[in-house]
């Protein structure tokens, strides 16, 4: 059964890049082939990493992960900026 070796960390980083669409087609193809071969030889580290990172992404992008700006924060900020603008802005070079 194959075990992770010294070159595997670089492959794992590529898994992360692959999910971000940051690998070219050729590199992506090589990566997928390597992962498939490793899995066939009994090492599923990269397959599991890819599955976990996909789940992480889903958790970050699901509606439940949404960030709701409290209305008072938006209102305060706008009021503060309007005060600053009326107190000093004169267009260019203000």
């Amino acid at each position: 059964m194959k075990k992770p070796g010294p070159g595997c960390d670089a492959v794992k980083e590529k898994v992360s890049m692959f999910l971000d669409g940051e690998l070219c087609r050729e590199e992506a193809g090589k990566l997928l082939e390597r992962i498939r071969n490793c899995a066939e030889e009994g090492c599923r580290e990269c397959v599991e990493l890819m599955e976990d990172l996909k789940k992480l992404r889903e958790a970050c992008r699901c509606p439940e992960a949404g960030c709701f700006v409290p209305p008072e924060v938006r209102e305060n900020l706008k009021a503060r900026l309007m005060r600053i603008m009326s107190g000093g802005h004169g267009g260019a070079g203000a």
Binding site: E58, A59, C62, A65
Partner: peptide, 24 residues
């Protein structure tokens, strides 16, 4: 930190909500 409030909207939503909060 504020937590998502979707824990009663089915198993999948609850799981995602828990994961989303843990990621945060």
């Amino acid at each position: 930190f504020d937590r998502p409030a979707a824990e009663n909207e089915g198993e999948k939503a609850a799981e995602l909500a828990e994961q989303a909060a843990a990621v945060k």
